[in-house]
């Protein structure tokens, strides 16, 4: 963390790119720009971490099992058309 004056406009600009940054879809220059800003801006770090945790939670939601009655009905239906 350094003591550069806080540039709110920079935060807003990077806010738009956070998902692409997380997904590693930014070009090298943009990626470096995000990293340079993030390492000196606590609000943007919080923003990035909450977004990453949101994605992580969503990706780890449990699946539901297919109801046995439906699975059986589906197989019967497929048998009838094949």
């Amino acid at each position: 963390m350094n003591n550069e004056p806080h540039d709110h406009e920079k935060c807003l600009k990077l806010f738009r790119k956070l998902s692409e940054y997380i997904d590693r879809e930014l070009d090298d220059a943009s990626c470096r720009e995000v990293e340079h800003h993030i390492c000196q801006c606590e609000p943007c770090q919080a923003c990035l971490e909450t977004l990453k945790k949101t994605i992580e939670l969503c990706k780890n939601m449990d699946d539901q099992p297919v109801p046995a009655a439906f699975s059986s009905k589906l197989r019967g239906l497929i048998r009838s058309v094949t």
């Binding site: 806080h6 709110h8 935060c11 606590e42 919080a46 990453k52």
Partner: peptide, 16 residues
């Protein structure tokens, strides 16, 4: 988007 700087949370929420 945070409307202004005051809406930016500086602290990482515990859940994150």
């Amino acid at each position: 988007l945070p409307k202004d700087e005051s809406e930016f949370n500086t602290e990482l929420p515990f859940w994150a």
